[in-house]
């Protein structure tokens, strides 16, 4: 090992500023606040435009002379369960365990599969338990929910990727789980706002955005998180 090489590497490092652990912690808190603010802001703006500022909608006209109303208990159960899934997804996406190389492929794959299934199963299960909640509501295709989910999740997804900075291994898979985590957070907001539990609506308006965000996360992860020579 030559002394000149050593000097060159040390000089290159000295010439390039790098944040310390405390700076990274402050940055993480800032980005977390940005993620929360952007998600909630998008939700409130969207809800303000579409439903006159009503953030929690309990029901509506399914058809002429047919009104559907969700109970507060059902809303809190489905949204609370979704919140637990979102918390798990965030733990999986943002935590790295005790390794600098992040979660294992197995954990990330399990998360990628189980988060969407778990969210849908939780919603359908509790809605079925309430009988009429699953009734057909063909006028509500789910396009508004699809847009709402994506709009709410975009800011958090970008913030999550910025928090992670780099992933030497599996950048696309890490990005996928980040997309799902952002989508799971959006699911909670959309669950409060949307009273429809009709299965085709759920698949188009609630589940599809999870996959859209997972795909966007994969592309973003591969582009931003993967290591490349500078």
């Amino acid at each position: 090992m030559s002394a000149a090489l050593r000097m060159r590497v040390l000089a290159a490092a000295a010439a390039e500023a790098s944040p310390t652990r405390s700076e990274i912690k402050r940055r993480g808190i800032f980005l977390g606040m940005i993620a929360a603010a952007s998600g909630m802001g998008a939700f409130m703006i969207f809800a303000g435009l579409v439903s006159g500022g009503t953030l929690v909608r309990l029901g509506g006209e399914v058809a002429p002379q047919q009104h559907l109303e969700r109970s507060l208990w059902l809303v809190s159960t489905t949204a609370g369960g979704a919140l637990a899934f979102a918390a798990t997804a965030l733990w999986l996406a943002l935590g790295r365990g005790r390794s600098m190389l992040g979660r294992s492929r197995r954990w990330l794959l399990y998360g990628s599969v189980l988060i969407p299934i778990g969210l849908l199963a939780w919603k359908v299960g509790w809605s079925m338990a309430f009988g009429d909640e699953m009734m057909a509501w063909p006028e509500r295709l789910g396009l508004r929910c699809l847009w709402l989910s994506v709009v709410v999740a975009v800011g958090p997804l970008l913030a999550f990727v910025a928090m992670r900075q780099s992933a030497p291994l599996r950048p696309a898979l890490n990005g996928t789980v980040m997309g799902l985590a952002a989508g799971a957070c959006a699911w909670v907001a959309v669950d409060l706002w949307c009273p429809v539990a009709y299965l085709p609506h759920l698949l188009l308006g609630h589940v599809l955005p999870l996959f859209v965000l997972a795909g966007a996360g994969a592309l973003l992860g591969q582009a931003v998180l993967s290591l490349r020579r500078r």
Binding site: M100, Q165, S166
Partner: peptide, 19 residues
């Protein structure tokens, strides 16, 4: 050199106790 500089850039993300 690139490897060590990458570690330098992300030193703040180092997990205490990680190998």
């Amino acid at each position: 050199q690139q490897t060590l500089l990458q570690m330098h850039r992300t030193r703040g993300t180092f997990i205490p106790g990680a190998p």
